[in-house]
Design a protein around this nucleic acid. Structure first.
Length: 560
RNA sequence: GCGCCCGUAGUUCAGCGGAUAGAACACCAGCCUUCUAAGCUGGUUACGAGGGUUCGACUCCCCCCGGGCGUACCA
């Protein structure tokens, strides 16, 4: 338990209220902690102002507090800053990399499925929001004490694979190209989608290829096996580049057969039925409309494998909850899927954790229409921008060091742009905005981190262990310590709301407080005893920044 | 039509029942012989409209107006 949590607990005992009742006053002259009296006053039929005054009069003096007084309908607490600051530094130092974590998840098994790539398609920046959001949610749930299991589901069996293969076979140029195969497949797909359009002849040919794939025989199937692997290799490089790891990966092609059996069972049970040549789930009685499961040409739709996968997850892992991170546009689909899984007899909780989509100034992205910014294009643009900025500032650095730093900046920027706003907001992606370095950006956070490393290097970090923390008497030092103590609250809230932007905003505020302090106070240039103490505080800021960076997947740069 | 989401400074976003609605960008004015100026300081401007619930509403409810998405063989 942190110093701040303990203070709240003690106060809660004395005042007979929950530690969660305390709020932080808007300005420091109003105190450091506050208890609003509205609720209790209402219960007692008293004025909250009178009640606050009475409480202030009767409260026993407590260690760690400088003053307790009523201000209007609030009971305000002023803390002893020296005790608080050394408490905070001690909390951070003791917990280290685990500072901020909690066990509210009670080790419950929670599977988080995200990233869901389509083989034979290009990776575009719309996927990035999914991948980065999902990865951050996974790490945040783990920090909240869940047994979080990150998994990826790869759609390698849909009609899109047949479309790509159809186009590839009709254009020998693809086979001859020396460009990376995974990338070429993406190009080939978007061209295919545009060519096919409403052409019945082409649709017929694609349908034949799809049947070969489903029946696992013929030239179409053979080429599917080969090209599928190209895509999977391409994904693996992509994940490696971004530092993303899954505990398990599922492939649609492994679940289709099981799904078809499930479909037969569901048909027999009357949960599915024939309609207009297709097989559908009529979920009108649940207000969920109609879900087509098998096309009228006999080929499988998405739910076939999804049903099998859902049950496979529950059989393979002990899960309290199965989370699907998918774009909000599929909300109805997931409600339908979850209802079917429930009708199959599963009682586990299933959650569609949705986020709103990413669009561009030129309108919605879709690989089918070719209006996309690909991951590769974004990365290239970002790297070119960041390496220019780095080399401008460090003419003496080696090319390798410049590139490495530029990469850390570029990838972190991509991640941060996708998770810094809450998930219910549409992101209109703009390259210039995304690569900005000032303000609420990952570069600002990284800059703060690098600045801290520079201080620690100059001051010799070993000094911090023998520091006399009573030297920390500046109001801004107290403010920073308070911010550090609040990190755990950000992690908790972020986990409860499954919203990484809470952590993103917290880190930004911490960095702002630090930079403010840095500009106003001499750290290295302070006299020895003060310097040691200040460095101890700075080291704690670094630990918290690093912990937060880890949750969001940002790269901590020592220099930039 | 029905369902879901969003309307807060010029722009992008916080705040989601309580103390003067916060940031960032942009714009203007300052700060590098001093710990990384990718930084810091100061300044201007906002809750779509109307009802209701409440001691108190940007926050909850209703209705309206804008915008987006979904709504049987895309995923």
């Amino acid at each position: 338990m942190t110093y701040l949590d303990n203070i709240k607990k003690q106060l809660g005992l004395v005042l007979d209220c929950s530690p969660r009742s305390f709020v932080y006053p808007p300005t420091s002259d109003l105190g450091d902690l506050s208890l609003p009296m509205f609720e209790e006053a209402k219960k007692l039929g008293l004025s909250p102002i009178v009640l606050a005054q009475e409480k202030a009069k009767n409260i026993p003096s407590l260690p760690g507090f400088k003053e307790i007084k009523a201000v209007g309908p609030y009971l305000n607490f002023y803390l002893e800053p020296l005790n608080f600051i050394s408490g905070a530094i001690s909390d951070v130092t003791t917990a280290g990399q685990t500072f901020g974590n909690n066990d509210s998840g009670q080790a419950a098994g929670v599977m988080i499925e995200y990233s869901n790539g389509n083989t034979h398609k290009e990776i575009h920046i719309g996927h990035l929001r999914n991948v980065f959001y999902g990865d951050a949610v996974y790490k945040i749930l783990a920090a909240n004490g869940y047994d979080a299991i990150p998994v990826s589901y790869i759609n390698d069996f849909g009609i899109h694979t047949a479309k790509t293969i159809w186009n590839w076979q009709n254009n020998p140029a693809y086979g001859k190209s020396t460009a990376p195969k995974g990338y070429l497949l993406g190009k080939c797909y978007s061209e295919a989608a545009q060519k096919i359009g409403d052409d019945p002849q082409a649709k017929e040919e694609v349908s034949l290829i799809m049947k070969e794939i489903e029946n696992r025989q013929g030239a179409g199937y053979e080429f599917w096996k080969e090209s599928r692997q190209w895509s999977i290799n391409y994904f693996n490089e992509f994940y490696k580049e971004l530092g993303i790891k899954f505990q398990d990966t599922f492939y649609e092609s492994d679940f289709v057969d099981q799904g078809l059996k499930l479909k037969d069972d569901l048909l027999a049970q009357g949960i599915l039925k024939l309609s207009e040549g297709a097989i559908i789930a009529d979920l009108e009685e649940y207000n969920l409309g109609i879900l087509p499961v098998i096309r009228s040409d006999g080929t499988a739709l998405y739910p076939v494998a999804d049903l099998a996968l859902a049950s496979a997850k529950f059989k393979k892992y002990q899960l309290k909850e199965s989370i699907y991170i998918v774009d909000v546009r599929q909300s109805l689909y997931f409600s339908q899927l979850f209802k079917l899984v429930e009708l199959l007899g599963y009682k586990e909780k299933m959650t569609h954790l949705s986020y709103d989509f990413l669009t561009t100034k030129n309108g919605m992205m879709a690989s089918r229409t070719g209006n996309v910014i690909t991951y590769k294009e974004l990365l290239d643009e970002a790297l070119s921008h960041t390496s220019k900025e780095v080399s401008k500032r460090h003419e003496d650095w080696s090319e390798e060091k410049i590139q490495q730093t530029a990469r850390g900046l570029a990838i972190s920027a991509m991640k941060f742009e996708m998770i810094k706003v809450s998930s219910d907001k549409v992101i209109t992606f703009d390259m210039v905005d995304a690569l900005r370095f000032e303000g609420f950006t990952s570069a600002y956070l990284q800059y703060t981190g690098a600045r801290i490393c520079s201080l620690l290097k100059k001051g010799e970090a070993s000094e911090t262990t023998t520091a006399n923390l009573n030297e920390l008497i500046e109001p801004k030092e107290f403010r920073l310590a308070m911010k550090l103590e609040q990190y755990g609250e950000a992690v908790l809230k972020s986990g409860l709301e499954r919203d990484p932007s809470v952590v993103a905003r917290y880190l930004f505020e911490l960095a702002q407080d630090f930079n403010d302090y840095y500009h106003e106070t001499n750290i290295i240039k302070a006299e020895t005893e003060t310097r040691k103490a200040r460095l101890a505080l700075v080291l704690s800021v670094k630990t918290v920044l690093e912990n937060g960076f880890n949750l969001l997947g940002l790269t901590y740069l020592i220099e930039m």
